Amino acid sequence: MSAGLDRAPLRVEDRGGYILATLDRPEKRNAIDQDLIDALHDLCGRLEAAPQTLVLRGEGGTFAAGADIAQLRDRRAADARAGINTRAFMRIAALPMPVIAVVDGYALGGGAELAYAADIRVGTQSLKIGNPETGLGIIAAAGATWRLRELVGEPLAAEILLAGRILDAPEAQAAGLITHLHDDGDAALAAAEKIAGRIAKLDPAATQATKRVLRAPRDAHPQIDLAEQAILFESPEKIRRMTEFLERKQAK
């Protein structure tokens, strides 16, 4: 049996305050194939039913070097319309709690689009991220054409998508695509775990409401903000947390 065929493509660990999911196809540089997409859907089902923060990483010093080209070559028009990767990444982006991507090494094509679907991205010095799809005769159709413009602005998004520009780590951080940059994957994962730990201390209902508002289209504001705030204003957890805050302040 060849390497990788006897293990699941996605390794999922419950770390208490968050879920750590590791893309585990290092022999293929974590290329995104149908089995991995199916595993991501299974993970989404779990996190939709029992919301937790998700930390996504890749095994072997690579986040995901793209889609599995052997499978992609055989796909036809019906597969494109089915949005195989698109729907999985949309589901990742819509998870109730925050998604943190640890982007180490290559994050290209579909790998980049999976990273774009996260709420927070932590990178390493070896990071290379971008969308070279047009060189393969296709477009970046799993989220890059709308998410990347919102993340880095239209001029840079155009160069990445139309000219195949690949950003290195300093460029990705300067563009705001990566908010933290670390020496290696272990340090980046530790930083992501620290962020997940901070989130775990916050009110889950308020965090989920904030994510819904943050992801809402511009014309939904301010109505969605006020509606979510109205629900939270009636929350016993809001009263408890604010009472504790005032008591701590008075005790000083």
Rank of each mutant, 00 (worst) to 15 (best):
E113C: 06
G60A: 12
Y116I: 09
A65N: 14
E154W: 03
L108A: 08
R73H: 13
R149P: 00
G135C: 10
A172D: 00
A78G: 14
I69G: 09
R87C: 11
P98K: 07
A88E: 11
A175T: 00
G60W: 00
T86Y: 14
R75D: 06
R87A: 07
Y116K: 03
R149V: 13
G83H: 07
A144I: 04
R76Q: 14
F63L: 10
A142R: 01
L95Y: 02
R147C: 06
N85R: 14
A67S: 13
R147I: 10
R121W: 02
I84E: 11
I160K: 00
Q173W: 01
R165G: 01
A140T: 03
I120K: 09
T124C: 06
N85H: 15
K128H: 14
E150R: 15
A65D: 14
G83K: 05
R75S: 01
N85V: 14
A80G: 13
L136S: 06
Y116E: 02
A93F: 02
D119A: 07
A157Q: 01
R87E: 10
V122G: 08
A64C: 12
A94Q: 13
L72N: 09
A175P: 09
A158Q: 13
R81T: 06
R75I: 04
G153I: 02
I138C: 12
Q125F: 15
R165P: 04
L114I: 08
A93Q: 09
I69K: 09
P96R: 10
L127E: 09
T179R: 14
R57H: 10
V122Y: 08
L136H: 01
V99P: 07
E159P: 06
T86H: 15
T124H: 01
T53G: 03
A163K: 15
G130E: 01
G109N: 05
G176F: 01
A141M: 05
A141K: 01
E159N: 11
Y116G: 03
L114K: 06
H180I: 00
G137V: 03
T53W: 09
G123H: 08
V55Q: 04
G83W: 05
R121C: 04
H180T: 12
A80Q: 14
Q71V: 06
I178T: 08
S126Y: 12
I129K: 01
A172E: 09
A112Q: 02
L114D: 00
A67H: 03
A77I: 13
V55T: 08
R76A: 14
N131Y: 11
P132D: 05
A140V: 05
K128P: 08
D74P: 09
V103H: 00
